[in-house]
Nucleic acid binder design. Sequence first.
DNA 1: CTCTGGATTGAC
DNA 2: TCAATCCAGAGG
Length: 199
Amino acid sequence: MNEYVSPPEEFFLEDAVTLAPALLGCLLRRDTPDGLITGIIVETESYTENDPASHAFGGRTDRNWPMFEKGGMAYVYLIYGMHNCFNVTSGTEGRGEAVLIRALQPVEGIGLMKKNRMVSGMRDLCSGPGKLCQALSIDRNLSGVSLMNGEIQIQIPCSAVEFNIAITKRIGITKAAGLPRRFLINNSKWISGKTDQSG
DNA sequence: CTCTGGATTGAC
DNA sequence: TCAATCCAGAGG
């Protein structure tokens, strides 16, 4: 069992395309009134300001303002009227970019995740951006909070973990659909998509 | 103010 | 394959 610690602030100041693969293998930790929930990040996507698929493409707004702040913030938004998506902002202040967290390997608080998701299969808990937000009770009230300390934190592993990173096109977008900006831990069974097997 | 479509999910 | 469901952003 690896140990995880808070990264230095500079960790989040990299550009989104650098930070997205760097977040793989890191721990996402969520403190709720009901208890602690954690999971290892296994799938991410990067969205930069010059990317037509990015919310930051049209400039700063009331919704996307965290993307333009200094890296290390949560940017949470509602998609399709019903699902929340959690992003880690990246880059120095003024740069509109973020990394979408798409899937986690559940670690702690699995009972809570099942309760929040109202499903029992491990594979269904965090294998998608909307799913993991529901499992960790993340909604857009948390957009703009710091990830350095507080109710949502990102922690890096103390000792390096061996894995290969696969890079593919992003999921579910129509603009700039061909860009290789999706990063995942190769052969992880916890990534999003259709590979159902309850357990 | 009205209109439109989306960084998704789960049921047909 | 497609409906659910709502708000940000664009246009009048």
